[in-house]
Design a protein around this nucleic acid. Structure first.
Lengths: 195, 195
DNA sequence: ACAATATATGAACGCCCGTTCAATTGGTAG
DNA sequence: CTACCAATTGAACGGGCGTTCATATATTGT
């Protein structure tokens, strides 16, 4: 059969991306075959090439879409005045956004080494833009005398690593709610940078 | 030829592990073939099976050896009195130890999903023992009234994620020396937990 | 010198890989 | 009703995979 539904819109493309995200996150890019992605979607392997030119581009497009969505979501976030409130907004946004997309986050961090050089460079550029957003908040707080940060770049990397780390252990229905975890992490970040 | 040197000791085993560590870290377990490891060592693929029963066990043994060495090294570290000095010792040890073995660290974090369930459980148990070492320091400082940590487990995970994060960006000969980086990170950790 | 043993080869096994493409299917437009 | 076109199949391509094993060679112990 050429179509799975009688409806007008073809939905195979999105299904392919969904399946690829789930499988890449679970087993790794190199360990997942095009045939397995196709099986998950319910088509033959050849059909995937209607939606991506090759496997590498499929991975790259997933990572780029994730990071572009991350940047757009951050830019859409309301920005309160004052470095403390801005930093709090960033911390809460970062944890919330990342906990909502654990598979995408996992791929974006783990599959960098499977990107061809030019794709890698493009992804790294997007990541740097996001890091820069945090760095600017720290810089603002530093200049206002609210923060005492010995090195802007290091503090940026330290905070992002700490916040992203939640993804490695957080489990839905665990001891603490997302809200509780977020509050505790924000408290640690605040004390680490406050002057 | 059956041996590469006329010497008494056979060194192929260690060479296999070295090559596997480098290649697994660079390209990922699933993307590296036994033939490629063998080529790196300078033998045929079949010879690898004199040193490991299979590829999965090779990965597991590398990860277990890394974590056992990490634990042994930490236990061998001199332990000063007082929670602050102990925490400082841990932070400095962690960054130093991890920066010295970037490939092993990378594998131990990235290849967990390629372990069979029982191997995964064994590695996780070792990692928990290491995390527990930090947690005990935080608990001691908490009880002594030196630290104010809202949640011991979260603070443990946050600090380890932050410290390990150095491995993702640190480059030898970069803007800051290891010593400078370590000092700055210790300062952030200290302020995050001090009461 | 010789047997025993450790080390390594190289071919072979069955299997899965990413990708291509002629042929087919089924919905849509005129 | 028919012509068209997007979507999909299924087979095929060359190649690499992990692992095994009979065979060969180099070193060791006597």
């Amino acid at each position: 059969m050429a179509r799975k539904t009688g409806s007008h819109a073809n939905i195979t493309g999105p299904l392919v991306r969904q399946a690829a995200v789930r499988l890449f996150a679970r087993h790794g890019y190199a360990a997942v075959s095009m045939r397995r992605i196709a099986a998950e979607v319910g088509v033959q392997a050849g059909a995937l090439y209607l939606y991506t030119p090759d496997k590498q581009t499929l991975l790259f497009d997933l990572m780029r879409a994730h990071l572009e969505d991350l940047l757009a979501s951050w830019e859409a976030e309301p920005k309160p005045a004052g470095a403390f409130r801005r930093l709090e907004t960033f911390c809460r946004f970062h944890i919330r956004y990342h906990l909502e997309r654990p598979d995408h986050v996992f791929i974006a961090y783990m599959e960098l080494r499977n990107l061809e050089p030019e794709n890698f460079a493009a992804i790294e550029a997007l990541r740097r833009r996001y890091e820069r957003a945090l760095e600017e908040i720290l810089e603002e707080g530093q200049k206002a005398g609210l923060f005492r940060v010995p090195d802007l770049r290091l503090a940026t990397m330290a905070i992002i690593a700490m916040l992203t780390g939640v993804n490695t252990w957080y489990q839905e229905g665990g001891r603490l709610s997302r809200e509780a975890v977020t509050g505790i992490y924000w408290d640690m970040v605040r004390r680490a940078v406050a002057s």
